[in-house]
């Protein structure tokens, strides 16, 4: 499947006319893109470090994870909106940039992983932790699985962020 046509369309769109014309505005949009990246990865980092028992051990993990959810969604919306704006100004350059595709693949994988694996595992770990021992504890999510999921989540999101920076270098 060749996605070149999307980039050619974006490159000649009205949005591209606009984003290519105002260098100052482009830099401000970049700033918001970075700031929302900080919000997204910061919130994920907080949750993952909590599940690794590194941070906020005295706060129930469910409380920490629930609080981060809203900010993760806000950050994702800002990231995508500012990202599309940025992409419109340099659409053809991005299409031929390896790290752009690494970042997009990482982002897609990160989202799927977060909502299909990470969050359900954390929720199950919290629920099973609340039950008093006995038969239910035997059914609990294994602690090493929770830690492995936290490490994988950190690896994915740091790689996505690093690939984003590396678009500019390659």
């Amino acid at each position: 499947m060749d996605l070149l046509f999307i980039f050619e369309w974006l490159d000649t769109s009205m949005l591209a006319d606009f984003s290519k014309s105002y260098a100052g505005l482009f830099a401000i949009v970049q700033t918001f893109h970075i700031a929302s990246m900080v919000m997204l990865v910061g919130m994920i980092l907080l949750g993952d470090l909590r599940m690794l028992n590194v941070l906020l051990r005295e706060v129930p993990s469910q409380k920490v994870i629930d609080n981060t959810g809203k900010w993760i969604k806000i950050a994702l919306v800002t990231i995508v909106l500012s990202g599309v704006y940025e992409a419109s100004a340099i659409a053809m350059k991005l299409y031929f940039n390896t790290f752009y595709w690494a970042k997009m693949a990482g982002l897609a994988m990160g989202l799927a992983y977060m909502y299909l694996i990470r969050n359900p595992i954390y929720r199950r770990a919290e629920l099973s932790g609340l039950e008093p021992g006995g038969a239910i504890a035997a059914e609990a999510v294994q602690p090493w699985v929770v830690k492995m999921v936290a490490v994988t989540s950190l690896v994915i999101w740091f790689t996505v962020s690093a690939s984003g920076r590396w678009i500019g270098f390659s």
Partner: peptide, 12 residues
């Protein structure tokens, strides 16, 4: 840039 997420993430 990546340590921004650690420092500013916690500050946020």
């Amino acid at each position: 840039v990546l340590t921004l997420t650690v420092f500013l993430g916690m500050l946020l």
